[in-house]
Computed example of a mutant assay.
Amino acid sequence: MWKRKLEEKIEATRKKMEDTAKVLGIGHPKVYQLSVELDELHNEWHQRHNRNSSFYTYHKAIVHAKEESIYYRTVV
């Protein structure tokens, strides 16, 4: 459910950015602001997507195991 809502927000922001660029010009600060918002939405999508993927879970387990190993070696 989060995915669809976030993708709709991404699309709406992209469209608003394109429309604003057509009216105000590509170099206008408002277009830049919308571009930054779009980047943040893309980053959020990727973070949420990766959190739900098996690769992320596997990688997180490996990192945790390495951290435990390092901790164990420094304590002993």
Rank of each mutant, 00 (worst) to 15 (best):
M1D: 12
K3E: 08
R4M: 09
R4V: 14
K5L: 10
L6I: 04
E8K: 12
E8S: 13
K9P: 03
I10V: 01
I10P: 03
E11W: 07
E11G: 05
A12H: 00
A12W: 01
A12Q: 02
A12V: 05
R14V: 00
R14Q: 02
R14N: 01
K15C: 03
M17R: 15
M17I: 01
M17P: 03
E18S: 09
E18T: 09
D19P: 07
T20K: 04
A21N: 03
A21G: 02
A21H: 10
A21Q: 06
K22C: 02
V23A: 04
V23F: 08
L24I: 01
G25E: 04
G25A: 05
I26Q: 13
G27F: 08
P29Q: 01
P29W: 01
P29T: 01
K30T: 08
K30C: 01
Y32C: 00
Y32R: 11
Y32P: 00
Q33R: 15
Q33K: 12
L34I: 04
S35V: 05
V36L: 13
E37V: 04
E37G: 00
L38Y: 06
D39I: 07
D39R: 15
D39W: 11
E40W: 13
H42N: 12
H42G: 04
H42V: 04
W45T: 01
W45D: 00
H46L: 07
Q47D: 08
R48D: 06
R48L: 14
R48A: 01
N50S: 10
N50P: 09
N50R: 14
R51D: 09
N52Y: 12
S54C: 04
F55R: 15
F55I: 07
Y56T: 03
Y56V: 02
Y56F: 14
T57V: 13
T57M: 13
Y58I: 04
Y58D: 13
Y58W: 12
H59Y: 12
H59A: 15
H59C: 10
K60A: 10
A61T: 08
A61R: 13
A61V: 05
I62T: 04
I62R: 13
I62E: 11
H64T: 09
E67R: 05
E67V: 00
E68F: 02
E68C: 06
E68G: 03
E68A: 13
S69N: 14
S69W: 10
Y71H: 10
Y71L: 12
R73F: 13
R73S: 10
R73Q: 13
T74M: 06
T74W: 08
